[in-house]
Design a protein around this nucleic acid. Structure first.
Lengths: 130, 130
DNA sequence: CTGGATCCTTTTCGATACTG
DNA sequence: CAGTATCGAAAAGGATCCAG
């Protein structure tokens, strides 16, 4: 499937089911809030719920909860609950989460490197379609 | 921003505005249909509207149009209209589009390599939260 | 402090019908 | 063939209130 863009494990199965799974996985991790969380954890390491929300900026607590649950379910995040009152919960990336952050670097770098080209393309397209 | 995951151009500006732009760009290109289109073009090169829709499978013509317009606006895609009847329109990736496909390889490979780990994590999480 | 539950608004998306 | 236009269903997302 990906063979035109990159060298890939030739033994990897190449059926529709796998492609669907891979896309489903990417669809989840490529989520706006997931990426932002990944970035925030990458910068600050272990974080508590409220602090994380502040660092991410603009996320509602509902979305924060949902994002964290999803990342935890996918094994990207480790959640540690301290049985104290008031409750304290720490979140930090797992090895898997860290490796995803690394994998995403290619795209982040691409976006940074080409941001001006893209902005220019958008402007040109905008003017072209009047 | 990304400095914890990868080595990055030290001269790159590092303000909130840039981060927002980069995230906005990634949010667009990490879209499900955009990624699928990228993959399909990577495999088959130049394609016509209807043919592309067939190759992508399951996409509505409305979403196909929207995805193609968006990619074209961002400079990922070149659209060629032949003034014939019935109309013929060819789409193919630009250099920028190809480079994005390459950048996404890291994530695709990550998803393929870790698909079983993720599936297992999901199952474990599911059973853990009963 | 950490979230679950609820309500409501906004956005997304598919299906359908229509045009040059 | 390659779209545009429109409608309604469904999902995403925000705001608020409440509980352990």
């Amino acid at each position: 499937m990906i063979t035109d863009f990159c060298i890939i494990d030739p033994d990897a199965p190449d059926d529709l089911e796998l492609a669907a799974l891979v896309r489903e996985i990417i669809g989840r991790v490529a989520d706006k809030w997931t990426m932002l969380a990944l970035e925030t954890f990458g910068e600050h390491g272990k974080l508590r719920f409220t602090r994380l929300g502040e660092m991410m900026g603009g996320i509602s607590q509902k979305m924060l909860t949902k994002t964290l649950r999803q990342m935890e379910a996918d094994g990207l995040l480790k959640r540690t609950v301290y049985p104290v009152v008031p409750p304290r919960v720490d979140y930090e990336l797992t090895e898997l989460g860290l490796s995803l952050g690394a994998a995403f670097c290619g795209v982040w770098i691409w976006a940074e490197q080409h941001r001006e080209t893209i902005t220019a393309a958008r402007k040109a397209f905008q003017e072209r379609t009047d």
